[in-house]
Amino acid sequence: MIEWVNTVLQGILTGGLYALFAAGLAIIFGVMRLVNITHGDLIVLSAFVAMVAIDVMGFNPFISLVAVLPIMFVFGYILQRSILNFTLGDDLLPPLLVTFGLSIVIQNLLLQIFSADSQRIKAGSLEILSIQLYENLSVGVFPLIVFIVAVFIIIGLQYLFSNTRIGRAFRATSDDAVTAQLMGINDRHIFSLSMALALLIVGIAGLFVGISTNFDPSAGPSRLLFAFEAVIMGGLGSLWGTLAGGIILGVSQNIGAKLDPGWQILAGHIAFLVILVFRPNGLFPRMRDD
C-alpha cells in the first residue's frame, strides 16, 4: 500500500516539472495561436546555457538563473520579433513548419558545440537530500522544490494574466489583434513579450531538467511531447489545467513504471488518450462565447 502512495506522490512531483514544460507552450498558444515545435529544444538549449554558466563561469546552480533568465528572455523576444511574427496569420501551418525547421537547427547547433554526449548539471547534496514523511515514505528535496516552484510560477502567471495591465493586453490581443491595435496595443510587441515570458519559464525548466535527468542535444522532442500532452489534457490555454495535465502525466508514468519499468512512457500516452476520449477539450477548457 505504502509503495503505491509513494508511486503516486513521486508522480505528482514529476508533474510539477511537466507543468513547467507545458506552461510556456500554453502561453504561446494562448496568446498567438502559435504551435511551437521548438519548445522542447529550447528547454534543452537553456539546460546547456545553465551548464555553461555553472561549469565555465562557476555559478551555483540556482544563481546561474541570474544569467540564464535574461538570456532566454531576450532571445525569446528577438526570435519572435525577427522571425516568428512573420509566420503568424490565419493559417496555423507556417509557424508549425518554421518552428520545426528551427528545432532542427538548434539540435544541430548544440550537437556541433557540445557533441552528442549525455550531460548532467550537478547540484551537489541537493540531488540526494530527502525528507522522511513516514517509514518507507520519503520525498526528495529537489523534486519538492521543483513542484513548489511550478505552483508558484502558475500562481504568478495567473495573477499576471488576470490582474495586470500587460495581462489584459495579452488577453485582448489573443481575442482580436486588430481591435487591440485600436487600444494602442502593438500586437507585434505583445507577441514578442509572450514568447520572452514563455522562455523565462523555459529557462527555469531547463535548469531543473538538467539537474534531474541526463540530457543531450536530441532530448528536446520528448520534452515537447510531454509538454503537449500536459497542455492538451489540461485544456488548451488554461494555466491551472497545465498543472493538472502535468500531474496526470507524471502519476500515470510512475504507475506504469511500477507495473513494469518498460511501461513508463507508454502509460503516460495511454492516460493522454483516455482523457481525450472522455474530455476532448481537456479538463479545463477555456470558456469562450464566440
Binding site: 489584459r168 485582448a172 481575442d175 481591435t179 485600436l182 477555456r286 469562450r288
Partner: peptide, 29 residues
C-alpha cells in the same frame, strides 16, 4: 490612439475574454 483619436468600431468588437470593466480599462491602455 495615443495621438488622441479613438474608434468605436463597427459591430462593437468587445474583447470576449475580458469583463465589462476590463474592456473599459483596456481602452485606457
Amino acid at each position: 490612439v495615443g495621438q488622441g483619436i479613438a474608434m468605436v468600431p463597427e459591430g462593437r468588437k468587445l474583447f470576449p475574454s475580458l469583463s465589462v470593466e476590463e474592456n473599459l480599462l483596456i481602452g485606457g491602455y
